[in-house]
Design a protein around this nucleic acid. Structure first.
Ligand SMILES: [Mn+2]
Ligand SMILES: [Mn+2]
Ligand SMILES: [Zn+2]
Ligand SMILES: [Zn+2]
Lengths: 145, 145
DNA sequence: CGTATGCTGAGAATGGTTCTCGTTTTAGCA
DNA sequence: TGCTAAAACGAGAACCATTCTCAGCATACG
C-alpha cells in the first residue's frame, strides 16, 4: 500500500497554486461553501481569483477526489473537502438543511432511530455515489456532457 | 396501523386533477422525468399543462410525500414517485448516471462490494434525507426560502 | 529570444426554474 | 340555476448560479 491514502492518488496531478488555495479555504471553513462564497473569501484573503477560475478548479479538485459537492434545493452547489463526512436533513418545504450525525456508508449498521431525526419527518432520501465511470478512468477527458 | 400506508397521509389533501395527471405519468414512466419532460408528455396525452403549473404541482406533490426529486449534475431536477426506490452511480467527469441496485436504508447491511460498482470508481457519496422539518410540520407554509 | 502550451478572468451567454399578474376555473351559497 | 370570492392556471418576463468565450498572460524549453 502506498504511503499516502488519498483517493484517486492526487500525487499524479500536482495541484496548481489556485487549487491549493481553494482547498485551504475549504479545509479552514467549518461548513460547506458555495462557489460564490469561495470567490468572496478569496477576494479578501490571499490573491483574487476570477469566478470562472473558482468554478474551473473546483471541478478539477472534484475530479481529483479532493473535494465533494452537493446541490441545495435552491440550485446552488456547496463544496467541502472529501475527508469531511457530513450529511443533512433537508426540508422540502422551506429548504432548510441541518446536519445529520450519521453516515450509512461508514457505520455498517445504519440506525435511523427516531432520536436522530428529532421530530424531522423524512419523506424521501437521496443516496448517490459520485465518482469516475469506467470510460472516464481510461481516457482523461475534460468534456462535460 | 391505518389501512393505507402512504407517507404524509395523502388523504388529508385530496390532490387536484392536474396533480393526479402528473402522478400518473410519473408512475407510468420507467425512469425519472425532468420537469420539461413531464411538460412535454402532458402536451401529447391528456390535456395541456403550462410549464409553471407542472413545476407548481410537482412541488406540492413533493410536499405531500408522493414524489421525490434529485438534482442532476447539469442542474436539472428529475422526479419519480416516492414508492420507487432507486439510486445511482454518477460520474463527476461526464455526468453520466446509471442505476445502482442497492439502498443503504432498505438493506440493513449495505454491501458496497466491488461487484456492484463494476469498475466505477467512487469518489464520494451523497446521502440526504428530505422531508418536513419540525416547524413546517406545525404550520402549513407555502413560502420557499 | 521564439514559440508552444496551458491558465486566467471580465463579460456575455445559457437554461432550468420561478415569478408576475391578468384570465379562467372552481367552490360556496342563496 | 345565477352570483361572487377564492383558488388554480399559464404565457411570458425575470432570475441567477454556472458555463462559455477569447484575448491576454505565465511558464517551459531549446
Ligand atoms: Mn458519509
Ligand atoms: Mn432507498
Ligand atoms: Zn421546513
Ligand atoms: Zn464518466
Amino acid at each position: 500500500m502506498a504511503p499516502h491514502a488519498h483517493p484517486t492518488d492526487p500525487s499524479d496531478m500536482p495541484l496548481g497554486p489556485r487549487q491549493r488555495a481553494l482547498l485551504a479555504v475549504l479545509r479552514a471553513a467549518n461548513a460547506e461553501l458555495s462557489g460564490q462564497e469561495l470567490h468572496e473569501r478569496l477576494r479578501q484573503s490571499s490573491q483574487r481569483h476570477g469566478l470562472a477560475t473558482v468554478y474551473r478548479n473546483l471541478r478539477l479538485l472534484q475530479r481529483s477526489g479532493l473535494v465533494r459537492c452537493r446541490k441545495l434545493p435552491n440550485g446552488e452547489s456547496v463544496y467541502a473537502p472529501l475527508e469531511r463526512d457530513d450529511h443533512h436533513l433537508t426540508c422540502v418545504s422551506c429548504g432548510h438543511s441541518e446536519p445529520l450525525p450519521i453516515c450509512p456508508v461508514a457505520s455498517g449498521g445504519l440506525a435511523l432511530t427516531k432520536v436522530l431525526l428529532q421530530g424531522f419527518k423524512p419523506l424521501f432520501h437521496t443516496f448517490e455515489i459520485h465518482g469516475l465511470c469506467r470510460s472516464c478512468q481510461q481516457s482523461e477527458p475534460l468534456a462535460h456532457g
